[in-house]
Nucleic acid binder design. Structure first.
Lengths: 145, 145
DNA sequence: TAAGTTGTAACAATGCTTGTTTCAACTTTC
DNA sequence: GAAAGTTGAAACAAGCATTGTTACAACTTA
């Protein structure tokens, strides 16, 4: 099982907004062209990023902008905005353990804390990188090409 | 996107094998009863755990056993045995970034290292817990019931 | 030999991800 | 005000993965 490609697409989108936003209007069509992701999906992602307070878009006038400095947007923020793991977490539990079995009755309790710790470890690692670093690295590579 | 319930089911299965293995024959039917997971799925999981060298099963004679001490089996081992993330990792990349776009051409390079670090953080956390601890915690809770 | 069990293949059901079409609402420009 | 371009959103389809189910050969033990 894998984390959706919407996450990497969202980072790609944000990077484009930051890099090209100065010189041109970054529309969902343009972003679709750069990412290879369907324009409607791009708009969906932008909608989720907007709900999370990461970008600003307006109906009619094309062009998305960051809602806050790139240095204040972490990969974790993007991950949370786009993936819907909030409700039940990254791990999925088998749903019907038998309450009549002493193991089935308690396995949830025993594992939950550890699964949360593992998920937190992933998320904390994502918190370490900001969009500003992604943009800086990308610009550096472009310059060296 | 979530990690398969096969993972938690596998831990449940191993816990049962360790706790009940002394007193009775732990068959896939019994495990199906405790986990609430279909017996064929249980056999599939057992097959993956066997391939990974974690359990021993034999056709005909019922009853699975651990192939090594519970203290030497980490949650990570179980995760690797059961999830098929080896090939492409936990994160999925959007597949067709545009090579004509300087961002699309390089976003993979920029993100890969960070995604690997995040995945490694998750896996390292899973390495910290052994089956022996899960079993000990479960026994403790059962005793307190 | 009979009963119980594992290993495995094939198929169905369900749900998730992504793509596609369509259209109303909005902004900008002419 | 009209036209062109854009966003937001709903509805639906295609593809894929997960899980369940059925079926059966191969094996072990009694």
């Amino acid at each position: 099982m894998q984390i959706t490609s919407k996450f990497t697409a969202a980072v790609h989108i944000l990077t484009c907004i930051e890099i090209f936003g100065g010189e041109m209007r970054v529309t969902s069509d343009f972003l679709s062209g750069s990412t290879g992701v369907n324009a409607v999906i791009v708009r969906n992602v932008l909608g989720q990023l907007r709900t999370a307070g990461i970008v600003e878009t307006r109906q009619g006038s094309g062009g998305a902008h960051l809602a806050k400095p790139a240095g204040e947007i972490t990969l974790y923020d993007v991950y949370r905005a786009v993936e819907c793991t909030d409700d039940d977490g990254l791990f999925r539990f088998h749903e019907n353990p038998n309450a009549k079995c002493p193991v089935g009755r308690n396995i949830h309790k025993v594992m939950d804390g550890r699964l949360e710790a593992a998920q937190a470890a992933l998320e904390n690692e994502l918190k370490k990188t900001t969009l500003a670093e992604i943009v800086a690295d990308t610009k550096k590579i472009i310059k060296e090409e």
